[in-house]
Write a protein that binds this DNA or RNA. Structure first.
Lengths: 245, 245
DNA sequence: CGACCCATTGATCGGTCTCAAACATTGTGG
DNA sequence: CCACAATGTTTGAGACCGATCAATGGGTCG
């Protein structure tokens, strides 16, 4: 991990990323909070850090706070009675972790790598919602955004072919990486998670993920640079797949 | 279809069903709107009726309104480039149909049977949100509720076994039916949708749905009464499956 | 009452899971 | 800094389950 924060002083306050309900300017991901709202949230937030593998929250636990990811990746998951684990989402900078129901967390959340996140106490947060309708609206937008993302994940899972699921997965992650990238050459993508985590996200075995990735390499669509970095070669076809997904 | 409305005069206004964010009284499904809010929505709403198979909205279409289901069942779905259809959700009384992004519907929506729904123009609705923070909060609760439902659907899809997916599906639908049921004998469930629709919802073929249902019958967990009504025999084990899913 | 749509049943095929083993990577302590 | 251990990844062989194709049977709606 680098010592200097890559996002500068702007990262020092909570941030919500998503697509606004009303058609935004670009249509892409935008910040859902203005400076004043970010300050409001900062006033009730404390920054927490988690090493890889640390639990942010556990399924069934009584809620106290939700987290706003600043840096690193968090996975939310649930365990089935046969001991398998299904990963519901990977959460990145600007995402919210801690969906709850009847005062209890629904899912467990674990740090995939080194994570920094703002801790937002629920009591204080709900008070803010009552006071500021625009803030409430921002969280509604974020909830709808997460709903769309979950639906998209569902579409991924409905594909029978392991290769197609992986291809959609890569397409989903690409926009995140492209900002840090100069748009010139082939886009490069860093997968911070392990193979088995991709597998649990896509409803596959770790072996099928490995085989699928290498199948895509053989087809000339992908190139692997080490275990956690890949280069997308066949961008055109990927865009087409994205349009239909 | 019966001529007399089963819910009486109370049905004459929009209704949002879901679990409140703060632990509600019962913990079960409750109405998220009070009488005043329902009237506010009624003032901008018009009641529309759709025969089976009618399209309420189409993927990619410019938005004008969202729908609040009063009676009947609506399915929301998306088509993949290979012509397959994935059903994202079945929407019942008190649900909202019409998730949108950048001014366009994300999914298509079709009436599964005879449907009545309130049409809520988006422009007027967004104006209401700005004016009434409590109403906004209710829609936030509803969005979180739908998010939970979608996650639950995801868990269903992560099961490899067709029988287990069906079992979870039945468990999901059971609470809806149990209200109309006296709680005495074995719960009965009406499936208004066709086999192929269940298949598209569960990521199976219609044949697999048929085989799975009859496998459950052979195991003594289920009994079929015609094509669209079933009786759940082994309630205990189902509750256990529900607790873990 | 007939035509169409839907549901069921059977046989075959393909893809992924599983188990098992070799291999690579990462992190650790000497 | 190196060697080692632990963890994670790749590859292979076989079994299983659901998709698909095809045909029959049952419901429903005109």
């Amino acid at each position: 991990m680098k010592d200097h924060h890559p996002h500068g002083v702007e990262a020092r306050r909570p941030l919500l990323r998503g697509v606004s309900l009303r058609g935004g300017a670009s249509g892409g991901n935008i910040a859902l909070l203005n400076a004043a709202q970010r300050q409001e949230l900062a006033d009730i937030a404390t920054l927490a850090r988690f090493p890889r593998g640390a639990l942010l929250q556990q399924e069934g636990e009584a809620i106290s706070a939700i987290f706003n990811v600043v840096e690193g990746v968090v996975k939310t998951y649930r365990l089935t009675e046969d001991g398998k684990r299904h990963i519901l989402a990977f959460m990145f900078r600007g995402d919210l972790v801690g969906l709850y129901e009847n005062g209890r967390y629904l899912n467990s959340a674990e740090a995939v790598n080194e994570v920094a996140a703002y801790r937002l106490p629920v009591a204080a947060l709900e008070k803010l919602w009552e006071r500021d309708p625009a803030l409430n609206m921002a969280f509604l937008s974020k909830a709808c955004h997460d709903l769309r993302a979950t639906q998209r994940h569902e579409i991924m899972l409905s594909r029978r072919d392991a290769r197609q699921r992986l291809w959609m997965f890569i397409d989903m992650l690409l926009p995140q990486a492209e900002e840090s990238n100069g748009g010139g050459e082939n886009p490069r993508l860093t997968l911070p998670m392990r193979r088995v985590e991709i597998a649990d996200y896509l409803g596959l075995s770790a072996e099928a993920v490995s085989r699928g990735l290498h199948a895509l390499v053989r087809e000339g669509k992908l190139r692997l640079h080490g275990l956690h970095q890949l280069e997308v070669l066949d961008r055109g076809e990927l865009a087409a797949a994205a349009a239909s997904g």
